[in-house]
Amino acid sequence: MQLLPGAEPFRHDGGEVGVLVCHGFTGSPQSVRPWADYLAERGLTVSLPLLPGHGTRWQDMAVTGWQDWYAEVDRELWALRERCSEVFVCGLSMGGALTLRLAARHGTAVSGIVLVNPANKVHGVAARALPVLRHLMPSTKGIASDIALPGAVEVGYDRVPLHSAHSFRRFLRMLDAELPQVTQPLLLMHSPQDHVVPPADSARILSRVSSLDVTERLLERSYHVATLDHDAETVFEETYAFIGRLSKGLAELGTAPGG
């Protein structure tokens, strides 16, 4: 199946500090590729996988579920662990939810996590009807390109497959119970004006995790896909500074911010 432009997975072989970057629901690596490029250009080893069912047609996603998406990032995490002495995980939207589960499940194998507009719940009046609705209609309107920056476009599906939305909802409900197991240093950046994931999701996550080292940043000028929006550079700089503060590898190389 032919990939959409920019939907290709990305890997960069850099130093001993690794970063796994996770894209969002119905999106593709294109939405977070500038984030991955920024880190790769600074010498980090970076992995940005294409989640199963994404980056082609929404019909391909309809036959996948959360187990497939999580298995992909789990594999990439362990590939980075074999290559790197430290691994950080970053995620946008559903990618943030996947990041949280990796942190909850793998403990010290994850050195820190960065979340941008992370999802905690499937919202909308039809959410509770998904178990039945998904059998009556295959898809609904898409959620891609919630971006304030004029001309910026997210490569994602124009339809949301309801079987996948139902699976995603089940995943988020399961993940919410696991959030207290998240203990790693956490940087959470979110947009007050987000038309896909409301700020309440970030508040819920911050209230549930057990992390003691927590930094929250507001992305005042951006909508949901902040990694392609006005605050993208802030996201990238804050991420690198966060990793630099925590990483022994970057400090030893003298490449940490202020180092």
Rank of each mutant, 00 (worst) to 15 (best):
T108C: 07
M94A: 11
F88W: 07
A109C: 08
N117H: 08
P34F: 13
E82F: 00
P49Y: 07
M61R: 01
F88I: 04
P118H: 10
L80Q: 03
M61I: 00
N120L: 14
G53E: 02
R75D: 13
V114H: 12
W69G: 00
P49E: 10
E76G: 00
P118F: 08
L102C: 07
V73E: 09
A36I: 03
R83H: 12
H123T: 13
R42C: 12
G95A: 08
L80P: 03
D74N: 12
N120P: 00
W58E: 04
G95P: 10
S111K: 15
Q59K: 13
M61G: 13
A62H: 04
R57F: 06
S47H: 14
V46P: 14
L44V: 00
L48V: 06
A109S: 14
W78R: 08
V73L: 11
H54N: 11
M94V: 05
W66D: 06
S85Y: 01
E41G: 14
L92G: 03
L48H: 03
V87L: 12
R42S: 08
C84V: 00
V63D: 11
W58M: 02
V73G: 05
S111R: 15
P52E: 08
D68A: 11
S93C: 12
L115K: 09
W66R: 01
